[in-house]
Structure formats: C-alpha cells, structure tokens
Nucleic acid binder design. Structure first.
Lengths: 218, 218, 218, 218
DNA sequence: CATGAATGAGTGTTCATTCAT
DNA sequence: CATGAATGAACACTCATTCAT
C-alpha cells in the first residue's frame, strides 16, 4: 500500500500512531495529533490508510510483528520451566523498556468491547495462548511439571502474571500500583522482580499438593 | 454535595454513570447518555457535579464503597492462606457477577496516565495493597508461608492474579482471551477456575525452593 | 420532530437553508453557513435534522408545500385554456417574485443524478405532471383543444415553457440568457411576457394542422 | 496555452473534464478524478491550465466549438420554419445522443450565479439567441410567420423548448420528469417527440389569433 | 518535463457545558 | 428548581494546489 514512503518514515508514522493510541486509545487519539507527532500532514495518513481504524490496525500489526520477533528468539529453544520462564520474562522486560508505548497500546486495546474485542483478542493473544498452553502441556507430559493441574488454566495464570508485569512496567496506573506494593518504582532493572516471580512460578508449577482441600458451598 | 436528591435516585444516577464509564471510558461516555439512562436531565447532573470528571469521581467513590463492603466481610476473619484466598476469590467472583460494570469501570480507569493515574491508583488499590501485603507478611512471620519470598512482591503477584480474574469475568476483551485458553466461556460458575487458582497459589506461597538458581547476564 | 422551536424560527431556518441550497446546491452549501444565515448555531440544525440530506429534504418539503398552496388556488376553478394558463403563469410569476430562492433551489435539484434524481423528480414534478396532463386531456375531450395532439407530450411542452419562465425570472444564468433575447431584464413586471406566451400557447394548443408533414430518416 | 500535448491527448483530457463536470458540476468535480479519467497526472493539468476554473473554461470552449459545428451545418440553408425547426431538433437530438455529457455540463453551468453566470450565458447562448431571433424576424418579415408576435420572445420560447428537450434526453432529473409525462423513457429514438413538437411549434408560430384577449389586473 | 506525494484549509458532525424558560 | 434547547470548539476526513524527484 505504501509506495514513496521510506521504510524509515513508515515506521516513524506507525510509532507516532502507537504512541498516540497508547496515550488516548483508539477513540481518544486524534489524527491531526498523530500527523504532528510524525512530522507529516493529515493528508499523508489518509493517503496510505483509508481511515482511522485502518491506520490503527496497521499500528497493531506493526507492533505485533516486533513482539513476535522477540518471542521467536526465546521460544525456539525448549528448556526447563525456570529457564524458559526466565527467558520470556527478561524478553518481555526488554520489550517493555524499549517499546513501552506498544505495551500501553495493547493495554488500551483491552478496553474494547463486543465483537471488536473478540477479534482483537484473537489477533493479539492467540499466539501466546497456544504457545504457553502447548509448552506447559508438553512439560507436564514429560513429568517436569505437576500432574494435578489443568495445563490450560495454569497457562492462563502464567500469562496473566506476565501481562500484569508488562503493564506494571509501562502503564502509569499500574506503575503507581506497583509502587504501592513495593514502595517505589520498579527497582534494579527488574532483577529482583524477575527472581521473585521465578520463585513464585517454580513452586506453583512444580509442587504437587497432597490433596485438593474439599470446600463446600459459599 | 447532593442536597435534594433521594438516596435512591442518587444511587440510580451513579449506577447509570458507572455503566456508561464502564462501556466507553471517561472520555467516551456522554453526559446526555448518562442522564437518559438515569431518567433525569443533563441539568441535574451539572447541578450536583461540577463537570464530567467530578461526576466520574463520585461514581468511583460510590463503587469503591461497595467493594470495600465486600472485602470487609472477608478480611475480618484471619484464616489460613487457602481459606483466606478462597474466600476472597469467591467474594470477587460474586462481585464480578453482580457488579460487572464496576469492574469494567475499574479497568477503564487503568488506562489513565500521569498524576491522575497515580491518584486513582492510590485511591483504588491502596486498601487491598496494604491488606494483602500485611496478611502475607503476618502469615509468613507465623511460619505458615515460605520464608524465602518477598512478601510485598508475592502480595503483588497475588493481587495481579485476582485482578486478571475479575477482568476475565467482566471485560469483553479478557473474556475472549480466557476463551482462547479454555476453549469457551468461563465454565461452571467459576468453580473449576477457583480450584485451580487455589492450587496454583498454595504451591506458590507455601513451597520453599531448595536454592535460587543462579543466572548470569541476559 | 420540532418542539421548542417556534414555527416562525422553524420557517426562518428552512428559508435560510433554501437560500443556501439555491445558491450552492446540496453539496456546495455549508451547514455552518446555513446556521449563520438563520442566526443559530450548527448544533440546532443537528438537533432537529439528522444530517444535511435530511435537512435538505425538510427544506424541499417546506417549499413544495407553499408551491402547492399557490397551485391549489389556481387549479380549483376549471377554465378555458387561455384563462387557465394565464392564471398559472401569473401565479408562478408571483411565486417567482416572492420565493425566488425556492425556484433556484428547484433548479439546483435538477442537477441531481441517478436514483436520487428520480425520486426528487417524482416528488417535485409528480403533482404538476398529472395536473397538466389531466387538464389538457379533459379539455381535448371537450373539444376545446386540437384533436391531433398527444396530450401527454403537449402537457410536457407546456410545463417546459413554464419551468423555463420561472428559471428565467429567478436564476442568474437564465436571467442573463433572457436579456440576450429581449435586450434587458424581464420587463414591465412580466405583463408582456405573459401576453406573448399566451398567444404562443393558444395557437399551439388550439390550431389543428391540415396534415402532418411526412419525414423520412435523418 | 497548450504546447507539447498532441491534439488527440488534448481532446481526451477535455472530454474527461466535460464528463466530470457534467456529473458533478464545477465545484463537485475533482481534479484528481479528471486526471485519472484522462490517463494523466494532476501535474499535467496544472501545467496547461492555471487552475480548475481555467480548465473548466477550456472544456466549455471545446464543447461550444463542437456544438457550433453542428449548428452551422443546419442553419446554413434557409428554409421554411417546419423544415428549419425539424433540422435543428434532429441535430440537437443527435448531439444529445453522441455528446450527452456536453449537454449535462451545459446544464450544470446554468446553476452559476452572479457575473460569472452572465458571462457564461453570453458565451453559450449568444450565438443561438441571435441565430433564432434573426431567423424568426426574417421569416416573419417574409410573411411566413404570424405578424402578431414579438419575434424576440417567440425565439426565446422556441429556444426554451429546445433546451428542455435536450435536458430531457441527457439529464437524469429531466429524464425522470419526462417519464412522468409519458410513462417511460424517451421512446422510439425521439421520432414521436419530434413530430409532436413540430406540430406544437408550427401552430404556435403560424396561426394568428383574432384578437388578444383583454385582461385586467390580477 | 511528468509524476503523484505532500500540504492544510475547509466541511459535516458530535458533545460537554450553559442558561432561558 | 428541573429541563433540555442552544452553543461552539473539536475531530475525521477531502481535495485543490504545489513541488521534489
């Protein structure tokens, strides 16, 4: 669709869009503002993208591509859980540091509703959902993880913790919330957070409980 | 701030606001729409609330009050972790079912930025952050929980899992995401999710690891 | 649809719209300009009319109503052709003088195309087309008009002459064109034009030709 | 004004312009669209024509040239009214069939206003106005036409009927209007319309009335 | 010299907020 | 007091015109 735009300029425009959408959401971001950030005129946006929604999708696809790049490097090498999780955590921490606005945009996207939300969720989460579920199921089959868990739900919990970690690095609200727990901004480049999260995950994933405590109705 | 409004009408107005903000966010929700939902005129809104932001804050305070009611009932009785967590989970599941729009509004709020975000986070998360951190620290001191953990970070992880659970019950995006993991909507009234989450938490919180695996630089 | 607007203001708004559409056409006229002419804000227009096209149709209906008022007064009393035509001509001359912008708007409408044009033509011309055709057919049956004519086509020619007369009174282009024929603006309040047009029509409608001249292919 | 363009390309560009102006009017037609239709770039348009209005005038002059060609062939041979009118009608019918967009453009032009309208009217109608008025005056002097008419006004009525005929062949609105009178599209290549119009004209132009009916004030 | 990408003022439409009734 | 009509700034999107390549 793009012809004369250099790849560089194209990226600059998309990054400007991602920043705007990250700050204000799909509805709140203004095309004029995006153009100004990117150093172009509104006309250019409408030359290459049919409308705001189309441009938004282009930003999303652009961002997903770089996210997938990062994940590909990690998920190639099968590993023990701790190594695997540690690599993913550090990869996502890096991604958060370098592409905070992408994470913020994803977070904005989670406020979507209706069928639009469903399509976005599938587009964004589909890859990791399968990735994590499959890995965990395989590791469970190999006997590396506890047998008494539903791999799908545990994968879900795993991803939940990772998502919240990213949001806590990038989104103002979650950063403030993190500070409430730890009394300050994210410390020491995330080293300690990483270590504690790994502890948390290792125990959760590997320690089988003697028996499921029986609970009657609430 | 309110004078002649009956308490009943006041609640109706605030609930209408919460629903609107839950659907569309602070910026997206329309004052005229809110007035229509509440069966009043816009004039009334502006009589009792100076502007949209002020009204939004009133909605938030109203919602926080009912959330604190729920939590108070649970957190009064000190308990073993499993019992404690189980009670909270079920309380939040109930709250999600009965007040989905409140949860969705909280979620919308997490997209705030700047100092506004900080103040909101403190207002909303302050209570639970202290609650969870203190409980966990005390339980750890009693020797009920593992000693090799940072109680603040583990409280943070604990709250992360609970927040995501609530969003996964109430917000369209997270519901769709949950379906990607579990191949359908939230099942059996959340019984199974609750059970698995408790397993996850119990192991994470009680099982001490032999040694923290040493990791060099990324 | 209108509630608080006085009938007076409503008319003022519609007249402002008619003037704007008369000058610039449906596409060329600006809602902001119309609001300014009517002494209101754009918001009012959009409160009472869903969009520009809807407002345009309201203007058209308003204008057609006043046109039909004028025609009703004339066409009630059946008359000999000359009296009938004379009355219509004078009524339309009056209408042109008092509601020039309406005529100019009709003229703008004739530039429509596609199905939109068809619907407009039926809405605007349907009444007069039937009126004239029926009158002429009846007068022909009574033996007052020549027998060797197709009443529908002659009604069509009759209406053509009337339309052009109105345009020649109201539209700048046609006024200038009229001046080319008569060396000045429309003279003496249209008395002479009326007299000559009646002569033209009377002969055309009443004089039967000896034989239709036979013509072969072009 | 044109330099390197072949005559062929020049015509193609002007025809593309005429079609666009015919469809959408001076204001509505888009320069980019015109360039696309003509298979050139917008830059070329602005190389040879200073702006849209200038280009529009070039289109108009081009069209007038071909219209004058057609009229010249007819009006050379002086003839009796019926033959003269018949030739003109058929010539205009042919022109309408072959150059419908030209007629539609003329029609669009009639929506002009102010001094712009005056200049256009003189440019377009000047020729025929003089042509018809002179012919009729001469024929009247020869005793072929009725003596009790104003040749200028009768020429005006004559041209009115011809203009409307052309519009009724080419413009969507007038086509629909014609259908209201005759219950369908223009029939049989216009043969019947031509015959009836000739009847109408012959009687109107040749039959002298006994006395002008005296009319007092309305 | 042709191209068509870039510009940016202008248009239709929405919505927070005010204020006459 | 309550109402909801009126205001007007803001935003998505278009298109005549320019100018770097």
């Amino acid at each position: 669709m793009l012809k004369k735009l250099t790849e560089e300029k194209r990226e600059e425009i998309l990054e400007a869009g991602i920043e705007a959408f990250a700050e204000s959401g799909l509805h709140g971001a203004g095309m004029a503002d995006i153009a100004r950030r990117a150093g172009i005129s509104v006309g250019v946006l409408y030359k290459y993208y049919v409308n705001k929604e189309d441009f938004f999708h282009a930003c999303l696809r652009h961002s997903l591509a770089s996210l997938e790049d990062v994940l590909r490097q990690v998920t190639g090498r099968e590993d023990k859980l701790l190594g695997y999780a540690g690599q993913i955590i550090r990869a996502l921490q890096d991604f958060s540091r370098d592409h905070g606005s992408h994470i913020r945009m994803y977070h904005q996207i989670t406020t979507a509703s209706g069928d639009f939300a469903r399509r976005l969720a599938e587009e964004i989460e589909g890859v990791t959902a399968r990735l994590y579920t499959d890995y965990i199921a395989r590791a469970q089959a190999r006997g590396e993880l506890r047998g008494d868990m539903d791999p799908r739900l545990f994968a879900f919990f795993f991803d939940n913790l990772l998502m919240m970690l990213q949001f806590s690095y990038c989104c103002d609200y979650y950063r403030a919330r993190f500070a409430l727990y730890c009394g300050g901004a994210v410390p020491d480049g995330g080293r300690q957070v990483e270590a504690e999260l790994l502890k948390f995950l290792e125990s959760a994933f590997t320690t089988e409980q003697a028996q499921i405590p029986h609970r009657e109705e609430r």
